[in-house]
Amino acid sequence: MADTRVTLCGITLDNPVIPASGTFGYGYEFAKLYDINCLGTFSFKGTTVLPRFGNPTPRIAETPSGMLNAVGLQNPGVDAVISYELPRLKEVFFKPVIANISGFSIDEYVQIAAVLDKEVQVGWIELNVSCPNVHGGGAAFGTTPDSAARVTGAVRRVTKKPLIVKLSPNVADIAGIAKSCECAGADAISLINTLLGMRIDIKKRSPLLANKTGGLSGRAIFPVALRMVYQVYEAVRIPIIGMGGVAGTEDVLEMMLAGATAVGIGSANLVDPFICRDIINSLPAEMDKYGISRLSDIIGGAH
C-alpha cells in the first residue's frame, strides 16, 4: 500500500497536494464540486488588513502555455476572513489550513499574523512577500535577503504557528533570500510565486492588462520553478513547498525529487477544477510505476 503522507513543520498531511493561494478562494467554492478533505491542505486567498478590490480589469490574459494575472490581492480583509470565511470553511474542511497573508508594511504583516495566530483552523501562516501586482508592498519585501529577514523576524515574534515564507522568482539570488528567511525564524519556504510578465494588444497598441504587467503562471513556468526549488533545497534545511506550473502527478514527483516536501497547485485549478482530487487519486498508481512505496522517501532524491 503506497504511503502518500508527508510531514510539513510537524503536521502530517495525508498527501503533499496543496492548492496554492489565489486559485482556491477560501475553499468552500470547491467544496461544492468535491470533498476537499482529500487535500493535504490548501493555502487560502492572500489576506490583507483591510478589504481590497484589487486592480482594474482586464486583469487576466492568456499566454503561450500559461496565463497572466494582475488581480492585486482582492480579499475581504482579515476581520471578514475570521468572522465569515473561516466559519464557512469549518463546515466543509476539517484539516488545518494555510493562512496566506500580505501587507504594505511590516506592521501590517505583524498585525494580521497576531490575529490569525489565535485561530485554531489555521495550521500554518504563509507570508506572501512576493505578489508582483501590488505597488509599495508584497514583492518589495521579498526582493532582498535583508527585507525578507526583517518581515520574517517581526512576524516570528507574534506567532507560535509554523511560519512559511513565499518567495518571488523575480530576484537574482533566491537561495540567498531563502537562507536569510531561515535564519530569521522561518519554518518553511514556499516557491515560486508568479514571474513578472506582460502582453500587448496589437490593435490598441497598448498593454492588454489594465495594470500593464502581471504574474505569469501555468505550464510555462514549471521548469523555472523546479530549478529554483532544487537550488533552495541545497541552501536551507527547512522544508519547501514547491509550486509553479504543476499540472499532473508526474510534476508532483519531479517537484519532490527536486526537494519539495509538499507541492502547490495553482492555475491548473482554474482550468480543471477537479485536478487536485484527480492527482491525489492517481498518486498511488504513479508511485507504483516508479517503485516508490513511501512518498516522503523521494524528497530531494535528485540531489
Binding site: 489565489g22 486559485t23 482556491f24 478562494g25 467554492e29 470547491f30 486567498k45 484589487g54 480589469t57 486583469r59 487576466i60 496565463m67 494575472n69 488581480v71 482582492q74 492555475s267 485549478n269 482554474l270 482550468v271 477544477p273
Partner: peptide
C-alpha cells in the same frame, strides 16, 4: 480566468 469564481480575475 476560471469562469467559476475561484480566481477573482473578472
Amino acid at each position: 480566468g476560471c469562469g467559476f469564481g475561484a480566481c477573482m480575475g473578472c
